[in-house]
Design a protein around this nucleic acid. Structure first.
Length: 439
RNA sequence: GCUGUGAUGGUGUAGGGGUUAGCACGGUAGGUUGUGGUCCUGCCAGCCCGGGUUCAAUUCCCGGUCACGGCCCCA
């Protein structure tokens, strides 16, 4: 039997309903914050990503050649395509742009729970405005979205790679180098908390190990806004420029006013992020339910538009939300609480079965149309089984009401409306209005 | 990229070198009730794929595929 490729998934009706419901919750929040949906192609020129994404992403591309030998690839992420779109389509649109997008991305890597070769990302980008307030708008939307999704217990981590870079250059590490600059290596080590690697790096770069005490102190700060005071002291001590730091502080004040308090907010100046186009504030959101794949959202301020000749729009700010992971976390939380409905509103709307009983079904069709026109979900019975079996079937398949029309009903212009859930049954006029009032 | 565990109908499972591979749910056809979820009967549907060992493999061995974990990386 042919089976679906590794790392891909089919979504059956019940799964799809849940996904659409979550998408709608996110979409509603995005619209409420002024972010409008855009869509870009599933495949792009290979060059778009080889030039604009980090090396980690490039190794995982689903690249291919088309019949005219164009070098193409399935998109591994959506930020670069959206930037490309802006440079092609929205150059002269008035700024700032608030864009949102949702779609699948493809990365060739080992698939496992929470990590798929085809995965879905919901994201937003704020273009043509920057600074703490713009960043606060973006983070506030992230918070609002997760809040709306019903997810609990997540943690928001905010850092600033600008500050981090300043710290690392201040202690004497070079910002340039192949294959990886000492600063970038150091950021990785700090992100992981790998102090041995850090020490080695400092040694090979001939830097006095005494700075490690300051770095450790910075890394050990654990908490929200209250850690900014101690952090400032350490940064001053290291002679780091404080402009970025002050902006981060303003950002945190703004978030507090713009969005509900997250379940947990941590300021962590050692958060590095994988993509190297991030330049300033960076943030991540994690949940515990997903083990090693616990990051469900990530973003920050980045410079990418200068690559498209739009340097005046840099930096921008945005985030990507791991749609599948959010859903997995929601499912895990629902299971832990014994909750059936995973995403609020995913249960299908009440629906009604029209059941002609020993009469020709054509007598019921116009009523079905009228009921549908007035907004009811109605299905015709298509199998004509005996009435007991059909009621049984209706009960198992999520119907709330069955309209039964027998020969005598037809004579009297009446019908029975039976509520499958309660067993209650009423006889009424066989008209759309009379039936509607009972559904 | 490294590494561990697993794979029996659609789902959940039993079993095990020679079996008609068992059970439950499900689906489907019908009987009964003939406005229900009961009961009864029939049917549908499975040992992941390829190679090896063996008289005999679904069972043991190897490889692949897929799934699930732990690192790395990321969404």
């Amino acid at each position: 039997m042919v089976q679906r490729p590794r790392g891909t998934r089919d979504f059956v009706p019940s799964a799809m309903r849940r996904r659409q419901c979550l998408e709608n919750l996110l979409e509603t929040k995005a619209l409420g914050h002024g972010f409008n949906r855009v869509q870009t192609p599933i495949f792009e020129s290979l060059e778009l990503f080889t030039a604009k994404s980090g090396p980690g992403v490039i190794k995982q591309l689903y690249a291919f050649e088309d019949k005219s030998k164009r070098q193409l690839t399935l998109r591994p992420e959506l930020t670069a395509p959206v930037m490309r779109m802006i440079s092609e389509e929205l150059r002269s649109a008035s700024k700032p742009l608030r864009l949102s997008y949702f779609g699948q991305c493809f990365r060739y890597e080992e698939s496992k729970k929470g990590r798929y070769r085809e995965f879905f990302q919901y994201g937003v980008e704020l273009i043509g405005a920057h600074g703490p307030l713009a960043e606060a708008e973006v983070i506030a939307l992230a918070i609002d979205m997760l809040e709306a999704s019903g997810l609990k217990g997540w943690e928001l981590r905010i850092g600033h790679v600008g500050i981090l870079r300043e710290v690392l250059t201040a202690i004497g590490l070079a910002a340039e180098g192949e294959p990886e600059s000492p600063v970038a290596s150091a950021m990785r080590f700090l992100d992981k908390g790998d102090w041995e690697g850090m020490e080695q790096l400092l040694e090979t770069n001939g830097i006095d190990l005494s700075v490690i005490a300051d770095l450790k102190a910075l890394s050990a700060l654990d908490g929200g806004k209250e850690t900014l005071g101690p952090a400032k002291t350490i940064l001053e001590q290291m002679n780091v420029d404080l402009d970025s730091f002050d902006q981060l502080s303003t950002l945190l004040d703004s978030i507090e006013l713009l969005a509900p308090t997250p379940p947990s907010l941590k300021v962590n100046l050692c958060v590095a992020r994988g993509l190297d186009y991030y330049t300033g504030m960076v943030f991540e959101i994690h949940v515990d339910e997903l083990g090693g794949e616990g990051q469900i959202l990530g973003g920050g301020s980045y410079r990418l538009l200068h690559l498209f000749g739009l340097e005046d729009l840099d930096p921008s700010c945005g985030f990507g939300l791991g749609f599948d992971r959010v859903l997995l976390a929601l499912e895990a939380q629902a299971a832990a609480e014994g909750r059936v409905e995973v995403v609020r509103g995913e249960s299908p709307a009440p629906s009604t079965l029209m059941l002609p009983f020993r009469i020709e079904s054509k007598h019921t069709l116009s009523i079905v149309k009228q009921l549908r026109d007035s907004g009811n979900n109605v299905e015709m019975d298509l199998r004509g089984k005996n009435i007991g079996k059909t009621l049984d079937w209706a009960g198992k398949n999520g119907f709330h009401n069955v309209i039964i029309v027998g020969p005598k009903d037809l004579e009297n212009n009446s019908c029975s409306v039976k509520n499958i859930l309660t067993g209650d049954q009423n006889t009424t006029e066989f008209s759309a209005d009379a039936i509607s009032s009972l559904l």
